[in-house]
Each structure stands twice: as structure tokens, then as C-alpha cells.
Design a protein around this nucleic acid. Structure first.
Lengths: 226, 226
DNA sequence: CTGCTGTGTTAAAGTCTGGTAAAATTTGGA
DNA sequence: TCCAAATTTTACCAGACTTTAACACAGCAG
């Protein structure tokens, strides 16, 4: 899940955000100084920054400007501050922030605004959808399969087959269902191709002594499970 | 200057916005119905939409969802409405809006938020920034590509193709998706042109012994990755 | 144990795809 | 207008992928 860097010097706020955002599935890092935040963002770039304006060393506008100057121009920055004057908002937004939320704030609104900002990152595919069964990892977007640390190259059919099995891990798929989804109901090939491809998959997936994941259910079909 | 579509059924608001935004150098189109706004956005896509929630026909959330479904995922949408309840804001943002401003609003704040949204988009509605994949650098604004220190001249098609691939680095793009985005769904050319252009790109990008970035996913499409 | 049925394995034939080069066409300036 | 560059079409081939087919093997019932 997305990683969020919270920069604020009030412990109540950081604790509250850390707890709330973590609960919503984000990975949260909190820090209370501007310079330290810049270092952190450079060394280990987060997916989004929640930034207070009043910090002990640098102010938030300056942090914002430097983040933009130094690093990723796309990094979403949400300013979160007690300053609710019009000029503060304009200054914040014009210094490069993508959004500006004033304290006191509703957590759900902040969350919605964070999601809105992350959607753009998501659109670019940085947060990809992945399937995992045992030590088998399937990256849908890249159509790439891993067994532990080892990448495994599959052909189009092989990939479609293992993806289908993984999407229904733990349930038996009949040969008819497999054929319909992987080959298409109007395909002219016969059901016999399935056993050939199961065989190809097993050979590729079980390299280097990995355990068998594809189990035969005699008379019915196949099931993928750890 | 950027073109802004204002969707609102209150003449005072549209007049006020038209005057204010025009004065600030934007090109403003105003419309008071949801369906008409969708048609307009499809036929003549603006750079940003300011959208009211309460419209005579469709509501703003629905307009927002349809804009996202039909068109460019990157089109910035700012909701501007009298509904200031928390759930309204969350609904608006989650239906795909990028920002949510409640009436009564300060014009300067709206303007700052519009500027913040437009910063990310160039005059074609594409995300603007420098993309980097391995040692390949793409400057969206200048339509210039670099491989390491070496600038690479590309034709318009070649550039559009590599930009699309880079925006989705790490994801496989099907030939159909590539064609639709680079050539346009109504283009008469056939899918075979893609392999020719992939070939051109590889030749230009791999000069001087640089490693291959464009990988073929046989039977599916292509993927750009380091 | 024996025969039957469904599955695993293998090799080879068949099909399709993508890389390539070159020709044909279109576009945009001069 | 003409020319050069860019774009698209076309055709061919090598190789990758898919499918077929034949046989070996395993599970199961009688």
C-alpha cells in the first residue's frame, strides 16, 4: 500500500494520523522537523506527504518548495495546518502544495483528499495489483510471475492459465471453466490442450525444487493452492 | 492559456467566474446542464472543469463519474458547491473530483486551487513532468527525450509512443491500447504500424550500446522497463 | 490381478506473431 | 508547385508458440 510521510511537530496530530492512516492500510512515517523530512524524502521517497506549515526549523512552505525543487515533481503534497487565512492557503498552494486542509479537520475529508491525490499515482500504475499464493507472486500489470526471488517467463497462454488459477486459488476449476476463460468458448482447440499446458506450467513453476502448487482433481479439473 | 469549462446552473456564479477567470487569462466556457457538459467535454476537451453538484438534469457526482469513465483520467475536476457536509465532500472526491470547494468561496482560493491542478497538466491535458525510466528521460513540456546525456530526436509518432510507454512503465500495454492512445481509436491505420514504430524507437533509443528498454510480450503487446 | 478411464509426457506438425526492409503514400514546408 | 521527411502499407521469414497425436502411466472398481 501507499507510503505516506507525515511532517508535523505536534505529537497529538502525528499520533492521530499515524493510527488512522495505518488503520486504513497506509504505511506511515512521521517526523517533526523540516530538514529531516527533506532528507527522509530524498533517501526513501514516499508516495505522498502530509505537511504542517509551522515547524520548529523550516516552515512548511519552504519544505514544499524544496521538495519540488529537489525531487519528484509529481509527489503529492497535502498541507495540513491551523493557518486558515486566505493568504496562507494561496501561499501554500502556490508554493507547490496540491491541497490545503485547515485544522481542525475531519479525518474522513483528509482521507478523501489523500485518495484523490493518490489516484493520479495509481493511474500511472505505480501501485500495481498483485496476486500471491504461497511463494508464487503474479504481477497483473506486467504479466510477470515470480517464484520466490526468481522471475519466471511464461507464454501468453501459460500466463493466462496461471492467473486464472491464482484468482481462484483454493477452489477447483473444471476443465470446461478453464477452457472457457483461457481459450475462449469459441476456440476450436480441444480440452486436451489443458493437460499439456498444466504440464508446461508445472515444469516452469517447480524449478529449483519448489513445491507443487497445481493439484489435479481427477475427473474434475485443477486447483492451485500452497 | 488554459481552457476551463464551468458547469453551473446559477447565472450569478457563472457570470462571476467567467469574468474573474477570463480576467486572469483563462479561456472560459460556461454551461448549465450535465448532459450538455458531457457532450461539450467530449467534443472539445477543456483543460479543467469547475463543476457544481446541483444541476437541473444529472447531479455533479454523476457527471464527474462519467467524465472519468469516458475521457481522460487526468482531466482535473474541481467541484464547487453549496453542499458543505462532510459526506458530500467525501462523495465528491471519491467520485473522481480532484478538489472540492464549498460556497461561499473566496475567488483567490479557487484560483489557487485551479492553478495547483493545472500545474500537473500540459496544454494537451497530459500529465506534465519529466518522466524517467532507467537512464531514459522524457521532458513532456519540451517533447524531448534523453538517453543518459545524449538527446534523441524523435518524430511526433515516435514521441507519443515512447511517452505512453513511459507513463505506464512496468505495465504491459496491449497493441489495442497503444493504438487507441497514440493513433486514436478512429484512425484508419492498422495495428501493424505499431511494430514498425517500435522498431524505429528501438533503433533510436538503443544507440551507443544502451540496454533494451522496450520488451515484447508476445501475443499481447509491449512493456517499457529498465 | 485385470481392464478401464483419465492424466502425464513427449515430440513433431501446424499456426501465428513480430522483426525487418523496402515501397507507397501523405504531410508540411520552402 | 515541388521536395524531403514522416507516416503507413506491404510482404516475407525466422522463430516462438500452440495444438495434435501417440503412448506411458496412475488410480480405481470389480
Amino acid at each position: 500500500m501507499a507510503r505516506i510521510l507525515v511532517v508535523d511537530d505536534e505529537p497529538q496530530i502525528t499520533d492521530f494520523l499515524r493510527r488512522g492512516l495505518t488503520y486504513k492500510g497506509f504505511s506511515v512515517t512521521a517526523i517533526d522537523k523540516g530538514e529531516a523530512a527533506l532528507d527522509l524524502a530524498r533517501d526513501n521517497p514516499p508516495d505522498l506527504v502530509v505537511l504542517d506549515v509551522t515547524l520548529p526549523d523550516l516552515n512548511g512552505y519552504e519544505v514544499c518548495r524544496r521538495l519540488r525543487a529537489a525531487g519528484d515533481k509529481n509527489l503529492p503534497i497535502v498541507m495540513l495546518t491551523a493557518r486558515d487565512q486566505l493568504e496562507d492557503k494561496v501561499t501554500g498552494l502556490d508554493s507547490g502544495a496540491d491541497d490545503y486542509v485547515t485544522k481542525p479537520f475531519a479525518f474522513d475529508e483528509l482521507l478523501a483528499r489523500i485518495r484523490a491525490r493518490l489516484r493520479q499515482v495509481d493511474n500511472r500504475g505505480r501501485l500495481k495489483h498483485k496476486l500471491q499464493v504461497g511463494n508464487l507472486l503474479i504481477d497483473n500489470a506486467a504479466r510477470q510471475v515470480w517464484r520466490g526471488e526468481q522471475p519466471i517467463d511464461l507464454t501468453a497462454r501459460e500466463y493466462d492459465l496461471v492467473e486464472l488459477l491464482a484468482q481462484h486459488a483454493g477452489q477447483v476449476l473444471t476443465k470446461e471453466a478453464i477452457f472457457e476463460h483461457v481459450w475462449g468458448y469459441d476456440n476450436e482447440a480441444g480440452l486436451e490442450v489443458i493437460k499439456v499446458y498444466i504440464n508446461y506450467l508445472r515444469a516452469k513453476l517447480n524449478q529449483a525444487g519448489h513445491s507443487e502448487l497445481i493439484h489435479t482433481v481427477r475427473g474434475v479439473g485443477y486447483i492451485l493452492k500452497a
